[in-house]
Computed example of a mutant assay.
Amino acid sequence: MIDLRTLSRRGFLNMSAAGAAALALPAGLFRAGTASAATLPAVAEEDAVIGFGHVGPITDEGWTWSHHQGLLAVKEAFPKLKKVIEVENVPYSADATRTYRQFVSEGANMIFDTSSTGDFLHEVVKRAPEVAFMECDGHQVMDNLGWYYLAHWYPTYVIGVAAGHLSKTGKLGYVASFPVASVFCSTNAFLMGARSVNPAATLQTIAINSWFDPQAATQAGTALIDNGCDFLFGIMDEAGYLQVAEQRGVWAAMWNTDIRRYGPNSYVSSVIIDFKKFYVDQVGKRLAGTWSPSETLLQMGSGVDRDVWGAKVPADVAKAADAVRDKIVGGWSPFTGEIKDSTGTVRIAKDQKMTDTELYTWDWSVEGVSGLTS
């Protein structure tokens, strides 16, 4: 049986049943630290070929656009590279395997899968031991494969704090994609942040079965506001529900990039992602012969953060939320028990601190979240 809760953040986009089966995760999700595999030999910059495979278009102003900015940073940092290969809209199917095999046949020394195609990628990894692979939102380490992702739950909690201050009704809305770990973690962190201000706050979610569907996101945002929500959040790659919030006069926060121009009066902030430094560092290590497979969660302030506050956010709200951000950066975790799930069952005991491993693989809703089932 496929456990849909453990699929990639992008793992449902255009996915068939066969695709889902191929992405089933192995037991023993994490390995501690860095793999012990020997490093790959150095490569002269002028001989190096670097490949990037994306799930969507680089013009989406969201997830794929952000990875493309990392590619551009690599080109700037290493202007003598022989070739940088970039393929958009890589499907979750055997076509992904063919795409990455083509990268290898073109002489790629390092390949980034920016949306975790799982076994479709791993088949190529096993057959190309001389190539370094990194899988975004991956869960497996091999001799020549590592993974990386974002600890997005921390800035999401901070934005939730702002929502707790700004919402007059305490009814928050969330435009979700699928019931996957990144969405559970995002909804939970958002409501927990809001409840630190207003313990009675609730979060209604609507899943639209897509990461990029402006029409569906618009409809979901409208429905949430019609149901009394006065603050919208979500994990979309476009601005559909932000535009609805602007039209209806409610607050909204976003994901991936700063797209406040679509709703300047409603925009509160966004979970901002930035892979540029990470990609430059990884390519630099590959060229120098010091790269080895690793597991990396980019932390708040270093790859992921909250965006500059929106123009209409009151100064006292911004100050209160940023005080919480400072505490988190200083080592405090808001994800400490007691934490109950949506049925009222205690999942995290009093004073027990959730690890990043648990946060990365969160697959249940906290008390107060409705509409999202695993």
Rank of each mutant, 00 (worst) to 15 (best):
Y267H: 12
A22R: 14
D119G: 15
G330W: 01
R325P: 09
R325H: 12
G53R: 07
R195Y: 11
L242K: 13
T290F: 13
R306F: 08
D341P: 01
N265T: 08
L72I: 10
F233G: 13
S93N: 07
H165D: 06
Y149R: 11
V313L: 04
S365V: 09
Q243V: 04
F278T: 01
D305E: 12
A349R: 06
N265M: 08
Q215S: 14
M110V: 05
S105I: 03
A223E: 10
S266C: 02
S36R: 13
W362P: 06
I208N: 10
L40Y: 08
T202K: 12
V158K: 09
K327D: 00
A162S: 10
K327R: 15
T64A: 15
V84L: 11
D237T: 09
V49E: 02
I259T: 08
I272D: 11
M354L: 15
A96M: 09
K285H: 13
D307R: 03
L72C: 07
T114F: 15
W147F: 15
G138S: 06
I272Q: 13
A38P: 01
F12W: 05
M354K: 10
K312F: 04
W251Y: 14
F52V: 09
T296L: 13
P293F: 07
L172G: 05
T187I: 03
W362V: 10
K340S: 10
D226T: 09
G173Q: 06
G160S: 08
L13H: 11
G221M: 10
I50C: 08
W255E: 11
F12V: 02
S116I: 03
D119S: 15
E238V: 06
D143M: 00
P26R: 01
L13S: 11
V329T: 04
K80M: 04
A253R: 13
Q204Y: 03
I208H: 08
A194E: 08
G170K: 02
W63Y: 10
N209D: 15
C185V: 13
V90P: 04
D230K: 12
L23E: 00
G368R: 03
K83R: 15
A253C: 14
K83M: 15
S105G: 03
C229W: 03
V304W: 11
S342Y: 10
A44I: 01
W291D: 00
E88T: 10
S8T: 02
A315M: 04
A162T: 12
V124F: 00
T187P: 02
K83C: 11
E123W: 01
S105F: 02
E123L: 03
G70S: 04
K350P: 02
S342F: 07
A194C: 04
A17I: 03
D351K: 00
C229N: 01
N227K: 15
I273P: 03
C229M: 02
V43S: 04
D281Y: 06
V74N: 01
C185H: 11
V268P: 14
Y279H: 14
Y92K: 05
G170T: 03
F231C: 07
G289T: 09
Y148K: 13
V125T: 02
C229T: 04
L242S: 11
V87P: 01
G234C: 05
T6W: 05
D307Y: 02
V43N: 03
V55A: 14
L297W: 12
A96P: 10
V55N: 12
S8Y: 01
K276A: 05
Y154T: 11
V180Q: 09
V180A: 12
R101K: 13
K171S: 05
D143I: 00
A151V: 08
D143E: 06
S333Y: 02
V346D: 00
L29T: 10
S270R: 06
